[in-house]
Amino acid sequence: MLGYSMPLYIYVIEDLLVSLVLLSSFVMLSSRWISFYIHAYGFQSFLIFVLTLILGIEAQSVDLYLVAFLTLFVRTIFVPYILLKMIKKFNIKEEVKLTLKIPFSIISGVVLTVIAYFLIYRLISPFSSKIVVNVASIALSLIFVGFFMIISRFTTITHILGLLVIENGIFLLSVAVVPTLPIIVELVVLFDILVTVTAMLILSMFMKMRTGSFSTSMLNRLVG
């Protein structure tokens, strides 16, 4: 379990890593360029991989090592690779159309993070160490920021990335709070990410062929 008999610098490293994770989600909130987004997502996934590895060493759990390396392959390498390839193939005009101005997005992100800290503190602080509370709060804030990204940006690629950030948050929450979660759960979640991303990419290709763009703001025919 977390919080026992580890040298102090491990906690410092964990704190640092998790704050970088938070930073990367704010980078996504403040960027206008899709390729920037995808790189930020890859960087975030890489940080989560390192964090999972450290937590695995701490909990002495082989399952976590396995999950960490799968995260490396799927989240850090494969998904960003196919997204970037997709962008290159379809020669997307890279700028994202934002409904909210960037300063407002960042302020909303801050508010969401504070709410996440508050909720997690109320929920798990009676039985968890401070470091777990910290990691879990940032994981929850990733989930919130992911939802915010979906509702505030109107292209298919950013929708997919929003979902992926939500999945990252759930994954981080699960490894931080319940490192004993059965490995089958993590495996099927990864499988699910692969399938969902593939399906959504195929759908957005259909959309590109029909409407000539990846923008979802013209999807307004079905109402009532």
């Binding site: 989930i143 939802f147 979906i150 298919t156 929708h159 979902l163 939500i166 999945e167 759930i170 929450l173 699960s174 709070v177 319940v178 979660l181 759960v185 979640v189 969902t196 399906a199 959504m200 759908l203 957005s204 259909f206 959309m207 029909r210 409407t211 979802t216 999807l219 025919r221 079905l222």
Partner: peptide
């Protein structure tokens, strides 16, 4: 494959996947 059906499918997959991720959070 029509524009309307693509719109419906996109809304479907996006809304329901976000919903399922909340349910996954609940399961955890």
């Amino acid at each position: 494959v029509t524009e309307k059906s693509i719109e419906a499918a996109w809304k479907y997959i996006l809304v329901v996947s976000s919903g399922i991720s909340l349910a996954l959070l609940g399961t955890i």
